[in-house]
Amino acid sequence: MTYKLILNGKTLKGETTTEAVDAATAEKVFKQYANDNGVDGEWTYDDATKAFTVTE
């Protein structure tokens, strides 16, 4: 299944996707991606759209 990450960081904005077996796996991938790019903020998840959002 495809999951999307929407980044609303102070220095990094954009979107990326990942293929994962479930939302928990996608969340781990996205949190590592955000951490690697220096984005740390409030996380939300919308199951209807399979989209995670992180806002700094």
Rank of each mutant, 00 (worst) to 15 (best):
T25R: 06
A23H: 10
D46V: 04
D36P: 02
E15D: 05
T49M: 11
T16G: 04
D46Q: 04
V39T: 03
M1Y: 15
N37H: 15
A24F: 10
V21Y: 12
E42V: 14
A20M: 03
D22Q: 03
T11M: 11
N37I: 14
K10Y: 11
A20L: 03
T53R: 06
K50L: 10
A48Y: 11
K31W: 07
Y3F: 13
T53S: 06
T11Q: 10
L5N: 01
G9E: 03
V54M: 05
A34Y: 02
G41S: 01
F30G: 01
F52M: 01
G41C: 03
N8A: 08
Y33S: 01
V21N: 11
E56W: 13
A34M: 06
Q32G: 05
N37P: 01
E15Q: 10
T44N: 08
K10V: 13
T2D: 05
T55S: 08
Q32W: 05
Y3G: 02
K4F: 11
M1K: 12
K10F: 13
A23R: 13
D46P: 00
T55G: 04
Y45M: 02
T18K: 04
N35C: 13
K50R: 14
A26S: 02
D36G: 05
L12A: 07
E56Q: 10
V39Y: 07
D40T: 14
K31C: 05
M1W: 13
K50H: 12
I6C: 06
D40S: 13
D22K: 03
K50M: 11
A51Y: 07
T17A: 07
A23G: 04
E27N: 05
T17D: 05
A20K: 03
K4D: 03
V54W: 04
N37S: 08
T11V: 11
G38W: 05
V29H: 11
A48R: 11
D40L: 12
L5R: 00
N35R: 15
M1S: 13
K10L: 15
Y33M: 05
A48G: 08
K50P: 01
Q32L: 09
D40K: 14
D46A: 04
T25S: 12
Y33P: 00
D46G: 02
T49C: 07
K4Y: 13
K13H: 10
E19W: 15
A34F: 03
L12D: 05
T11E: 09
L5C: 09
I6Q: 04
N8M: 12
V54C: 09
T53I: 07
T18I: 15
T53N: 04
T49L: 12
N37G: 04
G38I: 04
D22P: 01
T17Y: 15
F30W: 02
K28N: 07
V29I: 14
L7M: 12
E15C: 15
V39E: 02
T2R: 12
T44S: 13
E19F: 15
M1R: 13
E19H: 13
F30V: 01
L7W: 11
V54Y: 03
A23F: 13
L7A: 03
A24T: 09
Y3A: 02
D36K: 10
Y3V: 02
K31R: 15
N35V: 14
T16C: 15
T17P: 02
A26G: 02
D40V: 15
G9Y: 07
Q32Y: 05
N8P: 04
A34K: 01
A51N: 05
E27T: 04
K28Y: 09
D46M: 04
F30A: 00
V54L: 12
Y33E: 01
N35Q: 15
D47E: 14
F52Y: 06
T2C: 12
T25W: 07
V29P: 01
D46T: 04
A20F: 04
A51H: 06
E56Y: 11
K13L: 07
Q32T: 08
F30T: 00
V54T: 02
N8V: 13
E56L: 09
D22N: 09
F30Y: 01
A23E: 07
D36H: 07
G38K: 07
V54S: 01
G9A: 08
V29T: 10
T55A: 06
L5W: 02
N8L: 13
M1D: 12
K31F: 06
T11S: 12
T53D: 02
T53E: 04
W43L: 03
A51W: 06
E27R: 09
W43V: 02
Q32C: 07
E15A: 07
V29Y: 15
G41A: 02
G38T: 04
V54D: 00
A26W: 01
F52H: 01
A26N: 00
Y3C: 03
A34L: 10
Q32F: 05
D47Y: 09
A26P: 00
V21Q: 12
T16I: 15
K10Q: 11
V54Q: 01
E19L: 14
T53G: 03
E15R: 06
F52D: 00
Y33R: 03
K50D: 02
K31Y: 05
K13Y: 10
G14L: 15
A23Q: 11
D22I: 03
A23D: 05
L7K: 00
N37C: 14
E56A: 07
A48F: 11
K50I: 02
T44H: 10
A24R: 10
G14D: 08
A48L: 13
E19K: 13
T25P: 01
D47S: 12
F52N: 00
N8G: 04
G38C: 09
M1E: 12
V29F: 15
V39W: 14
A24P: 08
E19T: 14
T53L: 05
K50W: 05
V39D: 01
E56D: 09
W43D: 00
Y33G: 00
Y45K: 01
T49R: 10
L12F: 15
L12W: 14
G41D: 01
V39H: 04
W43Y: 02
L5E: 02
T18V: 14
A20T: 05
E56K: 04
T55F: 08
L12V: 13
A20W: 02
Y3R: 02
N35T: 14
T53F: 07
M1I: 14
V39S: 03
Q32A: 12
G38M: 06
V21H: 12
I6P: 00
E27D: 04
W43G: 00
T2L: 13
K4H: 11
I6W: 06
T18R: 05
G14Y: 14
K28G: 07
V54F: 05
D22H: 04
E15F: 13
T53C: 07
A51L: 14
K28L: 12
L12S: 07
I6D: 03
T44Y: 10
T16H: 14
V29A: 08
D46C: 08
V39N: 02
T16F: 15
T49K: 10
T44W: 07
V39G: 02
I6S: 04
V29M: 09
A48N: 11
G38F: 07
T2Y: 09
A20Q: 07
N35Y: 15
N37A: 13
T25I: 07
K28W: 09
T18G: 03
L5Y: 02
Y3I: 03
T53Y: 09
L7P: 01
T16W: 15
T11L: 12
Y33C: 05
V21K: 13
A34W: 03
V21L: 12
W43K: 00
T16Y: 15
Y33L: 06
E15W: 14
L12K: 10
K10G: 07
K4W: 11
D47H: 11
T55V: 08
G9P: 03
K28S: 10
E19Y: 15
I6E: 03
A24S: 09
F52G: 00
A20R: 02
K28V: 10
G9C: 14
T17G: 04
N8K: 11
K10N: 11
K28Q: 11
Q32K: 14
W43I: 03
A24L: 10
T25M: 11
K13T: 10
T25V: 07
E27A: 10
D36F: 08
N8F: 11
T53P: 00
T44A: 09
N37T: 06
L12R: 08
D47C: 07
A23V: 12
T2N: 06
